[in-house]
Design a protein around this nucleic acid. Sequence first.
DNA 1: CTGTTAGCGCTTTCAT
DNA 2: ATGAAAGCGCTAACAG
Lengths: 330, 330
Amino acid sequence: MNIREVAKRARVSTATVSRTINGSDKVKPATAARVRKAIEELNFLPNTHARTLVSGKSHILGLIISDITNPFFPDLVKSFEDEAVQRGKEIIIGNTDYNAKRMAGCIRRMVERKVDGVAIMTSESDPALLEDLTRRNIPTVFMDTGKPGPHWANIRVDYGQGIREAVHHLVTLNHRRIAFITGPMNLASAQTRCSVFISSLKAHGIFDSALIEKGNHRIEGGAMAMKALLKLPRRPTAVIASNDLTAIGALGAIHEMGLRVPEDISLIGFDDIAFAHLTNPPLTTVVLSRKQLAATALAALDALMQGRRDSLANLTIPTHLVMRSSTRAI
Amino acid sequence: MNIREVAKRARVSTATVSRTINGSDKVKPATAARVRKAIEELNFLPNTHARTLVSGKSHILGLIISDITNPFFPDLVKSFEDEAVQRGKEIIIGNTDYNAKRMAGCIRRMVERKVDGVAIMTSESDPALLEDLTRRNIPTVFMDTGKPGPHWANIRVDYGQGIREAVHHLVTLNHRRIAFITGPMNLASAQTRCSVFISSLKAHGIFDSALIEKGNHRIEGGAMAMKALLKLPRRPTAVIASNDLTAIGALGAIHEMGLRVPEDISLIGFDDIAFAHLTNPPLTTVVLSRKQLAATALAALDALMQGRRDSLANLTIPTHLVMRSSTRAI
DNA sequence: CTGTTAGCGCTTTCAT
DNA sequence: ATGAAAGCGCTAACAG
């Protein structure tokens, strides 16, 4: 079943069928109607591979993420897919599993499938692997990785804003001993969150380096760090975690030690993953909108594909505090 | 950059390059080596669309799910992708959003992209929409939807086993007033869980229809149902929820009423989503392995594509209880 | 407005 | 063991 059968049935040439499908204005309405009828009757759907072959555009977008089971990503994937489908594009997803070899495989698959563009939304990222995309001039948008170039765009996330709001919120609540549980410090984004925390506290004149504890953006890391914090001679009255998973781990540790949130300790997370409002108590956290991130990525990809480099000037995603029930005044 | 440039550089014909790529044994090793060298030097990757066009096989698999942000699915998607990539296949994902129109769109996309097969893992499913897949002889595997046919396979999930284990566990713990919070009763899988629960309780001679409350497989449904249950003159001592989200909602409601799990009420979920062991206390639940589900789906698709209908005989995924800390003896 | 035709990049007979 | 050439389904000149 192909375009020729449709042409035959509508008694026109394949060119006319093609024109009708692609909405060319130079097909006589009556002819177009006949073609559409034939398409309908035969239940014809054009072969995208053939279209890609001749047009050079696959209408496929690649999305490379670290790990779909990391609760940060499902929202992102969904929003990205929504936006893509709205534009008549398909997406193929690559999970790197935080692993360079798999990342290389993802990129290979993207190139083979001739994606029109790719969005790389991993926390980690090895520039060497990305060379292939450059060489083939594949429009690429990064999250927070700062590579400039003719076919590259970079979306920045304003982590600072959310952290400052979190600190301000706690200070307003009279907290002075505020701890921070970091992420893995090889991550630029984790570094930023930590350094903004430090500078915010210094601005308030309440910074104490003993109150910085290292985590790993996972539950157990948060729990371990929190336990260390609770063993301090003068323990903190509030804790900000570098992400929600860390905060959830910290929450567990606090409960385990027989303390309560927010009565004994106030707690703030980061990201606003789906489960952040399902914890007990619901977690006050910093929202990083994946929907906005996805929309911005697709807009950037569009701009890149159309050579509109001007609209790539300032791609920044804000973050902001959302108050729930894990913080309270002392 | 295409196969002709490689051929030119290796001073062979395109046919020889093609044979080399596809591992044909009738290429002289020396020639093959020369070709591989050229491929390497040019960094050539074959165009999958051209290959698909001539071979008729896209090496793409479709995966249709309800909603990637439903915590049941990320694990499934990941396992499915892993298995697919291992087989050298790509996957494209469709989210139906529990919506017939979107489901139709998903199927259309799959057909357009000429997928080699599709796995439909939605809870809901409208047979009429699937006609297109039948007509085009696209191998299709369903989760729990029981459509037989030459190009169809159906994976059953043995919900009963897990529910029976849950009931048995509670009975062993001396519980006699055991409640059940259902899912949406238009879902076959929710119905099964409920009816097995009822028959299990009857088998133990402890069934009380007042202890069945309706939920919707979402958090608030679980919370609402639990509140109703707690208002009963003689409230249950244990509750089984039709899925983990429901159990999490119930847990919140129990806490909200000032009661404790498992001291006052024992609670069991279903699915074992990622957050089931992050609740406080960690949730005793029934595991439905998404990894196994994905592996089985891919095996079934393989069998369908190769016409090995015999290996499709008994595709059943077991479920079993995993004990954590939300249940206790009375 | 419509048809004819030359490819897009690859695989696959069919020759040699 | 290798090459020449046809053709997968479609689009895009070009011609009329």
